Simulated assay, not measured.
Amino acid sequence: MKIIWGGAGDSATNQAIGVFVASRIEGCERGFSDFTTLGVVEKGGVLEQGRLIAGVVYHNYVPEAGVIELSAASTNKRWLTRPVLRAMFGYPFDEIGCQLAVLRVSEKNRGMADIARRFGFTGHRIPRLRGREEAEIIFTLTDDAWRAHAVNRL
């Protein structure tokens, strides 16, 4: 597996990863705007040579508050390796100086909710945020909680 980056420097890759993630998240049919992406490719070093198996979209960035939202999707459960996790959270916390990352998860997506909790996110359940019949859990992760997480220990 190899990590690739989209963004302003590679808008085609950025768009491809954004579409990949949005197409796999229920209720995200409109996609994302003003975003940067990280992708995980199965083989090869660029998207054209490998198969995209996971993507992370960084969006709703508020630099004044140091907050960014992450949305992610994958076709392979083994994509969350230590190097991917370090890159995934290194971007918001180390590269652009965020102090809080936000992740929105349907209350029905128990698998993702469990993953978020394992990585130190704190959940806040908001009734009806996904419509009349569905709550959403807003997960937050501070830079301090991330740095204290076991994945960052040698």
Rank of each mutant, 00 (worst) to 15 (best):
G6C: 03
G44Q: 09
E64A: 15
R110I: 07
E42L: 02
T13G: 05
V105I: 14
I138V: 15
P127N: 09
L47W: 01
G66K: 07
M88K: 11
D34E: 13
I25T: 07
F32V: 02
R128G: 01
I53V: 14
S71A: 15
L38K: 08
V19Y: 05
A12H: 09
F93S: 05
I96F: 10
K43S: 13
G90M: 07
C98I: 01
K108F: 10
F32G: 04
H59P: 04
E64H: 10
E133A: 13
E133V: 04
R30K: 14
T37N: 02
N152H: 09
E29T: 07
A148C: 11
P92E: 10
Q49H: 14
P127S: 09
E69I: 00
G97P: 09
G18V: 07
K77Y: 12
R30P: 03
M112C: 15
T37D: 00
L100E: 02
E134C: 12
G55M: 08
D10L: 02
G44V: 05
A116T: 12
R128H: 09
E29W: 06
Y61P: 00
R118G: 07
H124R: 13
A145D: 15
L154I: 04
R153Q: 13
T13N: 09
R24Y: 06
R82P: 00
F32C: 01
R125P: 03
D10F: 06
E29V: 01
N60G: 08
S33F: 10
T140L: 06
V41Q: 00
A101F: 06
A116S: 13
Y58E: 05
R110W: 02
F32W: 09
V57W: 12
V62W: 09
A54M: 08
L141Q: 03
R82E: 12
H149L: 08
S106I: 07
G123E: 04
G44I: 07
E136N: 02
G131V: 06
G27W: 00
R51N: 06
E26M: 11
R147S: 13
L80K: 11
R130Q: 08
G6M: 01
W79R: 02
E107R: 15
